[in-house]
């Protein structure tokens, strides 16, 4: 699939990357219809974060569900969805208190909290400036 790939400071290109796919039973796969460029993308674009070259940007994502994992019951194929930029589990200590911006389980680094699509230090998740997006 095509995606916006960060090459280095002030350099992005649209390239083929491996297709996004369901990786966990609770994932859905979304075909992206709109993905905005955010001001916070510009900090990364300018090389002023630890964002790794080769990864893709995009955390303001809208699209259509094209596939659901076996543990997903409410969201259906064909649903039009807008995705919070935060990736959150809903059941950790912080999520239960409403702090989905500081989720403890979707952030793989134990010393950190919070996860997001295509964002420096917010987990390994690809961004939505691409044809498809895995939504955990």
């Amino acid at each position: 699939m095509k995606a916006v790939v960060y090459k280095g400071p002030n350099d992005v290109s649209v390239e083929e990357i491996p297709d996004a796919k369901i990786e966990h039973p609770a994932d859905v796969l979304v075909r992206i219809t709109s993905a905005n460029i955010c001001g916070s993308d510009l900090h990364m674009y300018e090389g002023r974060t630890s964002f790794e070259p080769g990864r893709s940007f995009g955390h303001e994502n809208l699209g259509e569900v094209v596939e659901t994992g076996p543990a997903v019951s409410k969201v259906k194929v064909g649903d039009r969805v807008v995705l919070p930029f935060n990736i959150a589990c809903g059941f950790c200590k912080n999520c239960e208190r409403g702090f989905t911006n500081y989720c403890l389980t979707m952030q793989p680094e134990p010393k950190l909290a919070g996860a997001a699509y295509g964002f420096a230090d917010m987990g390994p998740y690809q961004g939505g400036q691409a044809e498809y997006l895995r939504v955990p």
Partner: peptide
Amino acid sequence: PLDQAPEGYKNFDSREDGWTKVVLHPA
């Protein structure tokens, strides 16, 4: 369209007049 993302980044980043918000449409 997604293919014009590099142009979107460049203009938004340099605060070109009139580039207040860029929406990409991969589909």
